[in-house]
Nucleic acid binder design. Structure first.
Length: 487
RNA sequence: GCCCUCAUCGUCUAGCGGCCCAGGACACCGCUCUUUCACAGCGGCAGCACGGGUUCGAAUCCCGUUGGGGGCACCA
């Protein structure tokens, strides 16, 4: 069992593409087969090294490892198509010599013109005009200075594909035009290079997006030729994964922000959550469970269980699944994952100081049930990391304060200033007696002003624990500051 | 236009002829817990696109209609 993942390095990693990688990976790991990683960089104009690096980084982030590929090597190296030109040129020559392909001289304009002249739809595609030219005609084109492309001859029978997720698919004879595999300038195209490498690399199962279903008959025809020429053992089995759709019911395109893997990482999706949600798009572990680990995915995965209908990307569900994974993390692991987000929010400069680390270790367990994505961390934890004088009290928190807020703050300050023990329980007891009992304010309203004073927000980690972590000095300063602000 | 494909709650899905007057999850709405927000728990809302067959029996099989998606490059 050999599967492959073969992106072209253009742009930033796309979630649909990474999902295809994930399914291939899961299938390989489930069956004990091999995952081959190959770079389809035959389009020099669009390919970039940055994109290549980004894909490698994305795979690593998701925990998708491969058995062969650039960087790790393997029996079929090199794994970058830009380094395999000789092979393709050789195969192209043989295809031509053995009659599977032919030289084609027509320009697209000429093809259209012929269709029009014959009263056919001009958008029908290539018409097979050059299939059986005489030597004289060929010479005439040569004399004009034309350079031919190489086209593969499609058979006159239907092409059948037994798709692993869709079953039997039949493409009627004549519905797929002869296709170009080598440009006039001699450059091989994806249409050649992809099947050739799959064949030569011994790929047994091709799992890819449904957008490639219509190109499958061409690849099957080419594969058959390769088998007949003795270059390949088999035509691989194909399985076409349902597309991932965006908001407007369209294929998730590179334009859509949800398609960008790294944007999700910045937003704070965990790789565990991402893997889980991606797998859920077209596959399910069990009728009554949709939160699962990478290991459970591998243990249960089978291509045959992939659904055939397109799936819409649902950010809310992705984040809900992510929240569950977030809660499954050990607190110290969550703390580590949070660090980059605290840095990019400007709350941390490099590694946390011992004091900051102590505060975070105390606070992370308190916020773990309060987050869906890591980028919520800075908002939740920021009050612990900023200096007292830099604490910004947010507008909505200020607006929610009721008239008795000043009294509450005064009573609280008085109760806390000489408190013998400074821990959550003692703080709570003191505040309850001073504010709830003393002032007769309902608990629901008693602690809002304090929360605002200390954290600057309406929503925060549990108040008494927060006060304990912050310490008496900071707490008193912040209460006094808000009290002054209230006049 | 041509070819391919898909069709169960708003969304992701379970269901592969009787176990289904359709199960789970997200979202949404209540309630409980509660110092806020969450988490957790409980409850609610909501679906087999339509029409024909086949069958004792259909969400499940077949045909058609409608609707959605994808593809039709000297891109990948």
């Amino acid at each position: 069992m050999r599967v492959r993942f073969c992106p072209s390095p253009t742009g930033t990693p796309h979630v649909g593409v990474m999902r295809a990688a994930l399914f291939n990976w899961a299938y390989a790991r489930h069956t004990g087969g091999k995952l081959v990683f190959r770079i389809e960089d035959t389009d020099a104009a669009r390919d970039s090294q940055e994109s290549m690096d980004a894909i490698v980084e994305g795979l690593a982030w998701l925990g998708i490892d491969y058995d062969e590929g650039p960087g790790v090597g393997g029996p079929h190296a090199p794994y970058r198509q830009s380094e395999r030109r000789d092979l393709y040129a050789d195969v192209a020559r043989r295809l031509l010599a053995e009659g599977y392909a032919y030289e084609s001289w027509s320009t697209p304009e000429e093809v259209e013109e012929r269709h029009r002249a014959a009263g056919r739809d001009p958008k029908l595609g290539y018409d097979g005009f050059d299939r059986d030219l005489s030597a004289a005609q060929v010479q005439a084109f040569r004399d004009e200075g034309r350079e031919p492309v190489l086209r593969v001859r499609m058979p006159d029978e239907d092409v059948e594909v037994d798709d692993l997720v869709r079953g039997r698919v039949v493409f009627p004879a004549g519905s797929v035009p002869d296709f170009v595999v080598v440009r006039a300038n001699g450059q091989p195209l994806y249409t050649l290079v992809n099947p050739v490498d799959d064949a030569v690399m011994g790929i047994t199962h091709v799992l890819r997006g449904e957008d490639l279903l219509s190109s499958t008959p061409r690849q099957v025809v080419l594969h058959r030729a390769l088998v007949e020429m003795g270059l390949s053992q088999r035509v691989p089995q194909f399985g076409h994964l349902p597309l991932v759709l965006g908001e407007g019911n369209r294929k998730l395109s590179k334009r859509d922000p949800e398609s960008d893997l790294f944007l999700h990482r910045e937003r704070g999706l965990l790789p565990e959550g991402m893997v889980n949600y991606l797998a859920l798009l077209g596959w399910s572990l069990a009728p009554d469970r949709d939160v699962f680990t990478r290991e459970e995915l591998v243990a249960a995965f089978d291509v045959r269980d992939i659904g055939a209908n397109p799936a819409r990307w649902d950010q809310k569900k992705a984040e809900a699944i992510n929240g569950d994974h977030l809660r499954m993390l050990a607190p110290e692991v969550l703390l580590d994952r949070l660090l980059p987000h605290l840095r990019s929010a400007g709350l941390l400069d490099g590694d946390p100081t011992p004091t900051q680390r102590r505060l975070l270790e105390g606070a992370v367990p308190l916020v773990q049930t309060r987050m869906g994505v890591l980028s919520e961390g800075p908002g939740m934890l920021g009050f612990l990391l900023v200096a007292d004088e830099d604490l910004v009290v947010e507008e909505d928190a200020l607006g929610a304060l009721r008239p008795e807020a000043a009294d509450v703050l005064d009573a609280s300050a008085a109760a806390l200033v000489d408190l013998p023990e400074w821990d959550a329980a003692a703080v709570e007891a003191a505040l309850r007696s001073a504010v709830v009992d003393g002032l007769g304010v309902k608990p629901k309203f008693a602690f809002g002003p304090l929360r605002t004073a200390v954290t600057g927000r309406r929503v925060s980690p549990p108040l008494f624990e927060s006060l304990e972590l912050l310490g008496r000095e900071s707490s008193m300063l912040r209460i006094a500051a808000l009290r002054r602000q209230l006049g």
